Simulated scan of single mutants.
Amino acid sequence: MMKPEAVDVLKNIRVVLARPSHPGNIGSAARAMKTMGLTRLTLVAPRDFPSAEANTLASGAVDVLEQAQVCASLSDALADVTLAAALTSRRREIAAPLLTPRDAAGELLACAAQGQQVALVFGNETFGLSIEEVEQCNLLVTIPGNPDYFSLNLAQAVQVLAYELFSQTGYGLDALRQPVEHASHAQVEGFYQHLEHTLQQIGFFERRPPDRLMRRLRTLFNRSRLQREEIDILRGMLKQIERHAPAQPPQP
């Protein structure tokens, strides 16, 4: 099976890191993004970029760092954006809607699907977004967590938002599933006949009603929708049992 392409709608969504202070977090955020199909990274006044530490923690996502846009201000980073979501963990005294990542994802994706530019805006690791930066965004998004201890790393927060977006794109798991060939009716019936013959040979039906037991066994195996390979395995087991089972005297 051919490797599927990334979801096109995600190309209109960028991650904006405002004033990141640790290059390792930039690299880890790039890795989190690429894992979920996001490739557009914008950095606002980063303290240390580019850097070897960022490249190391990006692992296979160095290309995201190499294509990253660096801006002097958040205003510059959002110049062509029509919908910006500010990530915050603090109560803000502004009227922008406050949503969870799951609730916000639908609106963000719908906007991106129309060809508009969307931004997820994350603040500095220590201080978060300033009130002036939050006021430049349309939505407030908060990741809910333990009120007694809530301390997400910047890259972890990026991962949560990226996952919620990706999970709502309808991207299936078919590419990861092994192809399955279910057994035909004739193959299953052949197995049941073989099973009944083997159970008779080893004396399993002695003092037991064979018809009733076979009905129960049919019900058991029918629930699993046997695959062709499984039929081959089971019949191979039956052949080995027959080969080593002592001969039973004929029933009177």
Rank of each mutant, 00 (worst) to 15 (best):
T56I: 10
Q159Y: 06
L98N: 07
G37N: 09
R208D: 00
A72K: 08
Q227H: 12
Q114E: 13
L176D: 10
I131T: 15
A95W: 01
L74Q: 09
L220K: 08
A96K: 07
E230I: 06
I233P: 13
G236N: 11
N12L: 02
D8S: 12
A155Y: 07
L83T: 08
H194I: 05
V160W: 11
E133G: 12
R208Y: 05
Q178K: 15
D80F: 00
T39R: 05
V81W: 10
R223G: 10
Q227L: 14
F221A: 13
S151W: 03
R91E: 09
G170Y: 07
E132Y: 01
T88G: 00
D103A: 15
P249G: 05
A58H: 06
G203Q: 03
C111M: 10
A86P: 04
T82R: 14
E189C: 04
A104I: 08
L74I: 10
L226K: 12
V160H: 05
E53W: 06
L195D: 12
R208P: 02
P209A: 09
H22E: 04
P97W: 07
K239M: 10
D232H: 13
P97C: 09
P97K: 04
V7R: 05
E93H: 11
Y192D: 00
E189P: 05
N12S: 11
F122E: 01
A6K: 10
V44L: 03
A85L: 02
P97H: 08
A86I: 12
